[in-house]
Structures are given as structure tokens and as C-alpha cells.
């Protein structure tokens, strides 16, 4: 009974909030500031031609730098929580599934490279490419071809950190231009491609780690 009252109370509040918010949103006039114009006006100096990529890696590239730090923090926290535990031997799936996964993996790598390259002028980029690569690792794990991970060895740690280190180094180096991440327009395209390439590898490893370090026998 008490529980029902609580549920009814919370849902009523939620509903009231939706109506309040909807009413206020319908009241809204046009905004004073429109960022579409400056985004487009500086696109030629941004080093890329896709506006979202320009915002993500140039105009607001600092957000993206901190966001990679957030991903690394989540992985570190995950490692601190799960600790070292033995990884059970992976169970092999049906041979047909294994063969399919083997066939899919090179295709996924090609797709990832394409996404990375396409990011400069159409939807795509390091995150999408990294996610596809990580998905390939998860696929291989699920069919029993890639065992789970028990502890991050030095090589893996370097790989996980490399993309962020590269990004941080470029951001710091550009202090010579006047401020953090202030790309000289002529070099912006190359630097952004460099950062995105490093991020693709590290993001793939981080995202795969978030899965593979969790994949172990419970209670071990």
C-alpha cells in the first residue's frame, strides 16, 4: 500500500513536470544567438568540411579531450572494482558462427578505416570507427576466439593511453600558437586526422576493455 502511494506520487510528479516543460517549450520565441552562422563561416579554417566534426574536434575540441579522460576514468574505475581475477577458458561456439566471425572481422576493420576517413566530410569519425573495431573484438570473444582479459599489461596500457596522450600533446604543443588547441588553419586538417587516428586505436581498445575485463566467472 505504502509502495503504491509512492509510485503514484512519483508518477504524478513526473507527469506534472512533463506538462510544465512542454508548456514552457511551446512558449519559446526565436533565440537571440544562432551559432550556425559562425560554425559555417569558420569551416574553411577548421581543417574539416563536416560541421559536426568541426565542432567536435576544433571549435569545442576541449570538450572532446575531457571526454576521452572520462572514458579512461571509467575504465580505471572498472579495473579498480573488478581487481585481478582468473579468466575462465572461453567456450568455443558452433564452428559456423566462428567461421562467420572470422569472415566478418576483416570487413569490420575495413569499415572502421572508412569511417575514420569519412569523418572529415560526412558522418563518421574516430568514435564510430573505434566502436566498430571494439565490436569486432567482442564478436570474436563471444564465439570463443578471443579470451577475456584479466589484467592490463604494459603493452595494453600504452595502447589504451596512446590516443589521449597524442591528443594532450597536440593540445599542449598548440599553446605556442596562443592557446590550447589553437590549430593553425593550414595544419588543422592534418592534426585532426592524426588525433582521430590515434583515438580510433585507443577508443577501440578502451571500449573492448570495458567488455573484456568484465567477462569473467562471477564469484571468482
Amino acid at each position: 500500500m505504502k509502495r503504491r502511494v509512492l509510485v503514484a506520487f512519483v508518477l504524478t510528479l513526473a507527469l506534472a513536470f512533463v506538462f510544465l516543460l512542454a508548456g514552457a517549450m511551446l512558449d519559446l520565441g526565436p533565440t537571440t544567438i544562432d551559432l550556425r552562422a559562425p560554425v559555417a563561416a569558420h569551416l574553411a579554417q577548421s581543417g574539416v568540411t563536416h560541421p559536426v566534426t568541426a565542432v567536435l574536434l576544433n571549435y569545442r575540441g576541449y570538450d572532446t579531450l575531457l571526454e576521452i579522460a572520462v572514458l579512461l576514468v571509467a575504465l580505471l574505475a572498472l579495473l579498480a572494482v573488478v581487481g585481478d581475477a582468473p579468466v575462465p577458458p572461453s567456450r568455443a561456439a558452433h564452428p559456423v558462427l566462428q567461421t562467420l566471425a572470422r569472415l566478418a572481422t576483416p570487413l569490420m576493420i575495413v569499415v572502421a578505416v572508412y569511417l575514420l576517413w569519412a569523418g572529415a566530410f560526412r558522418p563518421g569519425g574516430a568514435f564510430q570507427a573505434g566502436a566498430v573495431l571494439a565490436a569486432a573484438a567482442v564478436l570474436l570473444h563471444l564465439v570463443g576466439l578471443q579470451p577475456g582479459w584479466s589484467r592490463p599489461r604494459l603493452g595494453l596500457r600504452i595502447g589504451l593511453a596512446a590516443g589521449f596522450v597524442l591528443f594532450l600533446a597536440v593540445a599542449t604543443g598548440l599553446l605556442t600558437q596562443g592557446s590550447l588547441l589553437q590549430y593553425p588553419p593550414a595544419a588543422a586538417g592534418v592534426l585532426i586526422l592524426l588525433i582521430e587516428s590515434g583515438l580510433t586505436v585507443s577508443l577501440a581498445l578502451i571500449l573492448a576493455s570495458l567488455f573484456l575485463f568484465l567477462s569473467r566467472e562471477e564469484g571468482a
Binding site: 575531457l66 571526454e67 580505471l76
Partner: peptide, 29 residues
């Protein structure tokens, strides 16, 4: 980063960075 940011969305990213790091420290081991 939070104390120096003058951008409401950037502040959101710094809040999450602080929050997740703090949770990881609490949970560790």
C-alpha cells in the same frame, strides 16, 4: 577544469569527470 570553465556544457563534462573518478575511488578494492 571545473573551477576555470566558463561554459555550461563544458562544466557538465568536468562534473562527470569528477563524479566518475570519485565513484571509482570509493569502490576500489
Amino acid at each position: 577544469a571545473l573551477f576555470v570553465s566558463a561554459d555550461l556544457f563544458n562544466l557538465y563534462v568536468t562534473l562527470e569527470l569528477v563524479g566518475l573518478a570519485a565513484v571509482g575511488l570509493v569502490a576500489a578494492g
